[in-house]
Amino acid sequence: MELLIQSIVNGFIQSGFYALAAVGLVLIFGVMGVVNFAHGELVMVGAYTVWLLHAQYGVPFLPTILIAILLVTAIGALMEQFLFRPMRGDPLGGLICSIGVLFILQVVATVVGGDGPSKQVPPPYEGTLVLWDFLRVPYQRLFAIGVAIAALGLLWYFLTRTRLGWALRAVSQDREAASLQGINSNRISMIAICVGAAMAGLAGALMAPLTNINPHMGHNVIITAFIVTIVGGVGSLSGAVIASVLYALFHTFVTTYFNGTVATISGLLIMVLVLIIRPTGIMGHRVSE
């Protein structure tokens, strides 16, 4: 029973991280039609920034989060400017480019951090919240989920309440119609990738003290993001968030009661199942024709 409640809480906290990584992928795919395979590496760069600045050079935690976001956003902007824009209309080309970036970022991380064992960042917020004697939540995790929820809320506000957010959603619904209405799709794409990259950078920075940091950590991130994106419905941000919560709970449970590999295998099988039964995902809608 205690294990059950503890897993629910852990799963819920994990879901914030999944959601931050997945919304960026969804946003970039929805607006630009590009599958960003390097998205996991963007998260990895966010985590490395915190490791390097905070753990190695002692820069306070909060400013490093900001720096991580800015750095990853800049990488995203460069990818859009020099790779995705010339490749517009060629989804395969965009995908290949992002794989190229994936390799380059992994090597940069190896050069910066050196080979060897995974890196750890000591949690800046120590201590554990103990509730009713059996539920233990480290403050570091509380902080992470709090910031994640705030960031997702901000994104939601931006997309639904501002003109720019509206334009972004319009482009992701129908690029052609949006351009007929005078929406500059290049500018919108740039905004989409910057927002998506910023979320990835934040995800990496928040998770840095809670996970093992290595150049290949992006692999699991991208698998998770794919599962969440497909299950939630490609192009649906709310779907991605809901699926993140569900999948994180599921994954935490299976990991607790079996192990991590079984959890990922079943996650992938669920995803294939969703693709077969309902290719539009739980929140997606079918595009006509």
Partner: peptide, 19 residues
């Protein structure tokens, strides 16, 4: 250890300049 990056760069250049 730099090899993947060299590959990555070749890939990007190939798709941009020699599609």
């Amino acid at each position: 250890e730099l090899r993947p990056a060299i590959y990555g760069a070749i890939l990007v250049f190939a798709i941009l300049f020699l599609p």
